[in-house]
Design a protein around this nucleic acid. Structure first.
Length: 283
DNA sequence: AACGCTGCCTGTGGGC
DNA sequence: TGCCCACAGGCAGCGT
């Protein structure tokens, strides 16, 4: 599943290859992929538009064209590829942007969970999906103080908080398990019970893991590939995700898999303990 | 305000 | 071996 490092990799590849290219025609083969506007308007307004630049915010891709912009989320299995017009369309190809010079930009998605929206360039950052996002997981944007303020009123698990994108943007199920392991925090710890000192460690872990995964070209568990079709390599550095029953890299206790916030969750029961309640202390 | 549930989807793999 | 069904999961939308 593409999370921030994978999406950033896709962004860089697409920007390199699409800048200056013109869309001649758009074909949509699965209507629900287009969140808005209506299919006809989506296709019509993109005709003749030229790619200027491609940005990323959290796990969203922002394509800036001559007059309009496209907001794109890959969700679980979305992929972009650039191929010659003549390439046969596979059954998982749902949108084809016909470009100049006999090429296509194609959107593929086995699960059909991904979404594309055509939006006005001037107010793309006012889009509700982007408004909900917390800061980027970088040294400059993410502060311990803001995390502490955010968590003050949160009773739900720290894993649930990290998945919902509003405290910090870009992490998904894999990287949440990895950063909580590195910070020594049990995934079920209620948000408000994470101590300030642990938050400092968590912030560092988030920034470090995102940076390392980006440099490794992302994580390929099943199917992820960038726009060149290349897989990532960060799966070789995962410490807990997908390691159920394997020894913890720190203490050799078997990694456990449980369900937290409705998601498969991997952690070390020895290195990641729930905070103890104050009650029950003998006088 | 914060939380939890449901719908969207199809390929995979565990159980029998 | 082959069939069936539960499961996987990010986000939007909605109810509480």
């Amino acid at each position: 599943m593409p999370e921030l490092p994978e999406v950033e990799n896709v962004r860089a590849g697409l920007e390199m290859r699409l800048t200056g290219r013109t869309i001649e025609k758009v074909e949509v083969y699965w209507d629900n992929i287009i969140a808005s506007p209506a299919i006809d308007e989506f296709c019509e307004r993109l005709k003749g538009q030229q790619f200027e630049r491609i940005e990323r915010r959290g796990k969203f891709l922002l394509f800036f064209l001559t007059d309009v912009a496209i907001l794109s989320h890959l969700r679980m299995e979305g992929k972009y590829q650039i191929v010659p017009h003549a390439t046969p369309r596979t059954k998982h190809t749902h949108v084809i942007f016909h470009l100049d010079y006999e090429d296509d930009l194609r959107y593929l998605d086995v699960r059909k969970f991904g979404r594309l929206s055509l939006v006005e360039k001037s107010n793309i950052y006012q889009h509700p999906s982007l408004q909900k996002l917390g800061p980027e997981p970088t040294d400059e944007a993410l502060s311990v103080y803001a995390m502490q303020q955010f968590l003050k009123s949160r009773t739900k698990s720290i894993k649930g908080v990290l998945l919902d994108q509003s405290m910090v943007a870009g992490l998904g199920n894999i990287y949440v398990d990895e950063v909580l392991f590195r910070a020594g925090i049990h995934p079920e710890t209620p948000g408000k019970q994470v101590k300030y000192q642990q938050l400092e460690i968590l912030r560092e872990a988030i920034i470090k893991v995102m940076k390392e995964a980006l440099q490794a070209g992302g994580t390929t568990i099943r199917t992820y590939a960038n726009s060149f079709g290349d897989p990532g390599h960060y799966q070789d550095f995962l410490q807990v995700y997908g390691k159920k029953g394997k020894p913890c890299p720190n203490c050799h206790t078997p990694i456990q898999k449980i369900k937290v916030a409705g998601r498969g969750t991997h952690f070390c029961p020895h290195c990641q303990k729930l905070p103890q309640k104050a009650e029950g202390v003998t006088p």
